[in-house]
Amino acid sequence: MDTDLARERILDAAEDLFYARGIQAVGMDAVRDAAGVTLRRMYQLFPSKGDLVEAYLARRDARWLDSLATHVDTVGPTAQARVLAVFDWLEDWFARPDFHGCAFINSFGELAGTSPQVTAAARHHKDAFHAYLHQLTTAAGATAATGAQIALLAEGAMTTAAISGTPAPARHAKAAALNLLTLDARPVASPA
């Protein structure tokens, strides 16, 4: 098996297992078995579990943000519709049978005190997501404060959907985001 294929198989197995069960609950043997590679091959590619976790989170970050942006790019012509499309994408994600919450929130909760790399990966992902939302909300004419509030709505929807087991938080957050965008678009009346 060539290096690229082995790496992809290991990362696929790690992603499935770490995301479904948690990073601490999954050993390297389980990843090896699921990937169908030898332990020697796995350790050649990922010398430690920490290296594998970092690679898993980096790949998940890129894929997640790319999938979101691809969805938003296919949405209607208005900048406001693009902001709201984020919540439609979140709702679709929350409705999947393999949804277990945000992998970055989960990994941070598990390992924040013991793994600076996981903390850095989680912060990087959230910073990138919030920057993307800021870009969308600014294009829709919203203030930076509204963009930050919309980011909090998205983050809250992720956590609430994971706990509640329903995609409904995305719809509620979308309605609140629409209200924020509408209020932000209104001109402020000057005192007479």
Rank of each mutant, 00 (worst) to 15 (best):
L65S: 12
D66S: 15
D66F: 11
S67R: 11
S67Y: 05
L68Y: 14
A69H: 12
A69F: 10
A69D: 15
T70E: 15
T70D: 15
D73P: 08
D73S: 15
T74N: 11
V75P: 05
V75L: 11
G76L: 08
P77Q: 13
T78F: 08
T78C: 07
T78V: 09
A79G: 04
A79P: 06
A79D: 14
A79I: 06
Q80K: 14
Q80Y: 06
Q80A: 14
A81L: 11
A81Y: 04
A81I: 14
A81W: 03
R82M: 13
R82L: 15
L84T: 14
L84V: 09
A85N: 11
A85G: 12
F87W: 12
F87G: 15
W89R: 13
L90Q: 13
L90T: 08
L90N: 08
E91W: 04
E91V: 01
D92S: 11
W93G: 08
F94M: 04
F94P: 02
F94R: 01
A95Y: 02
A95D: 10
R96Q: 15
R96Y: 08
P97K: 06
D98P: 00
D98M: 01
F99W: 06
F99H: 06
H100L: 11
H100W: 08
H100M: 10
G101C: 02
C102V: 02
A103Q: 03
A103D: 07
I105G: 01
I105S: 04
I105P: 00
N106L: 11
N106K: 13
N106E: 06
S107H: 08
S107D: 08
G109S: 05
G109T: 03
G109N: 12
E110Y: 02
L111D: 04
G113Q: 08
G113S: 09
G113T: 09
S115R: 02
S115C: 04
P116M: 00
P116K: 00
Q117A: 14
Q117R: 11
Q117I: 03
Q117K: 02
V118E: 00
T119P: 00
T119F: 00
T119D: 00
A121P: 05
A121K: 02
R123G: 07
R123F: 12
R123I: 06
R123S: 09
H124P: 03
H125S: 02
H125M: 03
K126T: 12
K126A: 09
A128I: 01
A128C: 04
A128N: 10
F129G: 00
H130I: 07
A131W: 02
A131C: 10
A131F: 04
Y132R: 07
L133A: 07
H134S: 09
H134K: 07
Q135F: 05
L136H: 05
T137R: 01
T137P: 10
T138P: 06
A139K: 05
A139D: 12
A139F: 11
A140I: 09
A142D: 12
A142C: 13
A142L: 11
A142N: 13
T143A: 13
T143D: 10
A144Q: 08
T146F: 00
G147N: 03
Q149E: 05
Q149V: 02
I150D: 01
A151W: 01
A151N: 01
A151R: 03
A151P: 02
L152Q: 06
L152R: 05
L152E: 07
L153F: 04
L153R: 04
A154T: 09
E155R: 01
E155L: 05
G156T: 01
G156W: 03
A157P: 01
M158S: 01
M158D: 07
T159Q: 04
T159F: 04
